[in-house]
Amino acid sequence: MAKKLRSKKAAERTTNAVIYIILIVISVIWLFPFFFLILQSLRGEPGLTPGYFWPKKITFDNYIKLFTDKTPFDFWRWYGTTLTISVVVTIIQTTITLVTSYALSRLRFKMRKPLMNLMLVLGMFPGFMSMTALYFLLKLMKLTQDFGIVGLILVYVGSSCMGYYISKGFFDTIPRSLDEAARIDGASRHVVFLKIILPLAKPIIIYTILTSFMAPWGEFMFASLIFSGNTKYFNVAVGLREMLQRENAPKYFTRFCAGAVVISLPITILFFLLQRYYVEGVTGGSVKG
């Protein structure tokens, strides 16, 4: 009996060892690009990937040049543009998403179901096909190039009510008896929303803020259309890609890496600080049918 137990234990130990090895391999694969990115951003020698892995000269020049060298790429300005867009989009989008999902979750009106179906169907159109039409619409309002920031914000925010799904799922889980008790005490629906539901919805508010803040940093398609060709107006995504375009790549690759680190760092920190809420949102939203 004891022997059998011991062999079982040994088997357990081998499985664990195998799992550890697999996990280590996975970790290496997953971390390699980031490690490579940081190494390259510190590389002193110019050019695209050189014929070796470890840089010969470690320097912070790329970071310094990124912020001081304003031509042809004004990184500071890109950063400012993106940050502005991000903050404004976060505020508006969070408001719209919360308001929409509250209405769809708690209020009962004739058009509720049709509206939800409509949004489901609209979501199936390939998003950027409407880009051309949107582009001309913005051009009419003179919201490209010089005022491209406003145009971009409008586009990002414009259909944010379609992202109601996850927060509606959250509101659905808040017991209705809370609303009813308050309504019996004479509170209007407006008061119920502000005073009772919103304070309870903190996790989902943070989730919405986090996702809507992160999205504009990586948005690429529409920004490139709106700022087409005018490097100084770019947001970071379009700008960094510009650095890797054919003729720029050999010269600016290391600087691209530095820029990538500078952008990723604050977002990554923010993400890890608020990770709990993110996980809650993702798990809650994706399993409910």
């Binding site: 719209i96 308001v99 929409t100 509250y102 209405a103 209020l107 009106f109 509720r112 509206l115 949004m119 609209l122 159109f125 096909m129 409407s130 880009m131 051309t132 039409a133 949107l134 619409l137 409008l154 586009v155 925010v157 414009g158 259909s159 944010s160 009510c161 379609m162 209007s188 629906r189 407006h190 929303f193």
Partner: peptide, 24 residues
């Protein structure tokens, strides 16, 4: 209350999603 809450989101939806789709 639903009219107050949904007016602005739906206006956005109309101009920035539905109008372009019809155009397309």
């Amino acid at each position: 209350y639903h009219k107050t809450l949904l007016a602005l989101p739906l206006l956005g939806l109309l101009v920035f999603t539905i109008l372009p789709i019809i155009f397309m």
